[in-house]
Amino acid sequence: MFNRYFVDNVSKQIVLVCAAVSLLVLFLIVIFIFKEGFPAFAKIGLLKFLFGTEWSLKEEKFSILPLIIGSTLAMLGTVVIATPLSIACAVFLSEVAPHRISSLLRQAIEVLVGIPSVVYGLVGMTLLVPLIRQLGGSGYSLLAGIVVLTIMVLPTMVTITEDSLRAVPVSYKEAALALGATQWQAIWMVLLPAARSGITAAFILGMARAIGETMAVYMVIGNAFAIPGSILDPSRTLTSHIVGQIQESASGSLHLSALFAVGIVLIIFILVFNSIAFLIRRKTL
């Protein structure tokens, strides 16, 4: 048998090595992505890359304004629909619904979270797109993307909002009720304002999820590399652009580097959202 102090010491070193390896790997991933993407920024020029509207493999012209606009519209459309719905649903879960219904609904939400995004994409293609075709256009459209994204971010947003509602001390609500407020007045004037930082966090994480989602959007949004004129036009997002091009990229080409540059733009979006969510959480702790 080894001496237990010896074991203690060795184990500590092993755990330290684990941590060092993981952190190194994660750090290298970030470095690698930026290193690969940098040549595109350098050769094309940052402004031209961000604000140009051409992407051509043959002429080696790469710029991504339509993608940024596509992603932004899809994301904003999604949160505009999902935020009120998720707040109402969270209030329903924590304040209104009878216990049995709320636990059933929570299980439904858990299943929705776990369903793979390709399944959402498939149902979007076969059920939603033909419906939208009735409104005009091919059906593969920004609107289809927004509806699918809304369904996909809804469970996350409901869960975070509900948690923040539950975190409000019961005494707040009791005080409002004791002053003669109705249940709804207590929720609307006391509970929701007290939970606003959690609700904001849900909003921001919803945006982050919407902009990062790939396959489902790729399958329904139509993938036209153009700035959409209406919500029924096909569009393309940053993520779906990478998926669409990834099999054609050759090693060391400007094309691959430009794809990494698209990835960097995405990471910056996520970084901004996460930092805001992080700050909100720290302020409230």
Binding site: F32, I33, T214
Partner: peptide, 10 residues
Amino acid sequence: GVPSIIFGLF
């Protein structure tokens, strides 16, 4: 929170 497609690209 980084989108999985970026890991795919990596």
